[in-house]
């Protein structure tokens, strides 16, 4: 009980990180449903790494350039992630190489560059670690606002285009037959994922964002066979993973990102048990 009261009494310490965590968990959980249903889990891994690379590159370039868009970690991360998303969503084949191979290539390239460039910078090395693994205990006010606005805008876009995103994801051939702008809708869908990944990776770190994009939807798929419920359960599971992860991180002095990821893993195990015993919603 004393742990809980200590936690509550310290709310001024965790309020903003918690807000960012639960908002990120909700929106990542929501968008992650598409990531899992479209079987592009490693796209989110690639995007989180590219986003992380953008942050690291911006720190590195601060020593050489005064150009704002090259030296602002959030902006460069956003630009690189959106560029990767557009290239990926607008091309189905790359010189006869499958998409998943290209995703692997992008992931390895971004990861390698993060380590190589991260090794070259002294200033902001702590930020590099936080971007990769999510040690974001302190969140700046502007990050809270940015993450919240991004999440609200993404939810609104998905509210209006829900039917269309599901349609082009499930049956793109019929969507083309009905003259739906399949490429355009896919580009919007991936861009929304890319922007959310860039913004939340800067606030939470690559590992927890990847976990929140993949594991809450997996949990939701395990506990329901209803499409619309999937989009309710998954954001809720993301929110729960983030909130519980922050709580455990605070009271047990654990790394925040890893705590969030492990809570999400635990949820999927719980989901597997529910499915095994037919306890579906």
């Amino acid at each position: 009980m004393s742990v809980l009261s200590e936690f509550i009494n310290s709310y001024f310490l965790w309020r903003d990180p918690m807000i960012v965590g639960v908002v990120s968990g909700s929106i990542c959980g929501f968008l992650g449903v598409y990531v899992v249903l479209k079987r592009i889990v490693f796209v989110s891994a690639m995007l989180t790494q590219i986003s992380g690379f953008g942050v690291v590159l911006a720190f590195y370039l601060q020593g050489f350039s005064t150009l704002f868009f090259l030296t602002d970690p959030s902006l460069l991360s956003l630009l690189l992630t959106c560029a990767a998303v557009l290239i990926f969503s607008l091309r189905e084949r790359f010189l006869y190489i499958s998409q998943e191979s290209v995703i692997g290539w992008g992931y390895i390239l971004a990861s390698g560059l993060v380590i190589v460039i991260g090794d070259r910078i002294t200033q902001g090395s702590h930020d590099v670690a936080s971007v990769l693994f999510g040690t974001a205990v302190v969140v700046e006010r502007h990050e809270t606002i940015t993450v919240t606005i991004t999440a609200v805008v993404s939810f609104l876009i998905h509210w209006f285009l829900f039917k269309d995103f599901i349609f082009v994801s499930f049956d793109p051939e019929l969507a083309r037959l009905f003259r739906y702008p399949v490429r355009g809708l896919n580009a919007i869908l991936f861009l929304s994922i890319g922007v959310v990944v860039a913004v939340t990776t800067r606030a939470l770190g690559a590992l927890p964002v990847f976990a929140l994009l993949v594991l809450p939807p997996v949990f939701a798929l395990l506990v329901t066979d209803r499409l619309k419920l999937l989009f309710v359960i998954s954001p809720f599971a993301g929110l729960l993973s983030a909130a519980l992860g922050y709580f455990l991180s605070f009271v047990l002095s654990l790394p925040t990102g890893a705590s969030i990821a492990l809570v999400a893993v635990f949820l999927t195990v719980l989901g597997g048990i529910c499915r095994r015993f037919g306890l579906l919603l």
């Binding site: 798929l221 329901t224 499409l227």
Partner: peptide, 12 residues
Amino acid sequence: NFDRLFPLSVAE
């Protein structure tokens, strides 16, 4: 040819 991962109902 449909992806069985999508939990669509028959009506949907």
